[in-house]
Amino acid sequence: METILKIENLHCQVQDQEILKGLNLEIKKGEVHAIMGPNGSGKSTLSSVLAGKEDYEITKGKIIYQNEDISELSPEERSWNGMFLAFQYPVEIPGVSNINFLRTALNEKNKALGKDQISAKDFLKMVSEKSALVGLDNKLKNRSVNEGFSGGEKKRNEIFQMAMLDPTLSILDETDSGLDIDALKIVSDGVNTLKSKENATIVITHYQRLLDYIVPDFVHVLYDGRIVKSGDKNLALELEERGYDWLKLEPAI
């Protein structure tokens, strides 16, 4: 299978503090990778640096996405190339309509890819299809981005936007936090529906629970800025049982 993402010996600094300390990861088309790890181990930093957040400085190593080193690309260019990050903490943006900005986003993507603009009719059709997929309340679509949304609604909105943008590589940063079990099932079903042989998903979580619904091909443990252990879905079960402390005793691999 074709490689979508290859991270080689990635070192990353935020405000002069080294957070990622030599991270390696390879993801192929059709795969689901789970990244687990205790709080503060660098999971969100990894997702931000993949999505191109400024101030996250790569001091060493490479991120190769679809055979291209993307470290110089802006967040929007990465998005146009099919990357999507579902935020751990989706940002509330008062006064900016959820639907209007998404329409602009789609059109700017189409423009960048040399495609036609989407018609108002097709857009609305797509909106109702994709919001049904995650059970996003109709009235939320027209509200300001995430403003006054409950934790669960914010997460549904993230997956709704993911569905609209149809990414090649999705990074879901703790999408399960703030979801009750019913919502978790709906959102997971949504993600599973979007899965194909042509795309790949990184699921970041620190609960095994989510992985019952979105079943990973690989599970990695991120600890202190490095991947210290990789395995299949059984590793997640083991972590659930034993916690992370035992990993500190083992040498990094």
Partner: peptide, 15 residues
């Protein structure tokens, strides 16, 4: 808000 700017750009809006 820088976070909001990053959020919108990560969805494909130019700066």
């Amino acid at each position: 808000d820088d976070e909001a700017l990053f959020y919108l750009r990560s969805r494909g809006l130019s700066r």
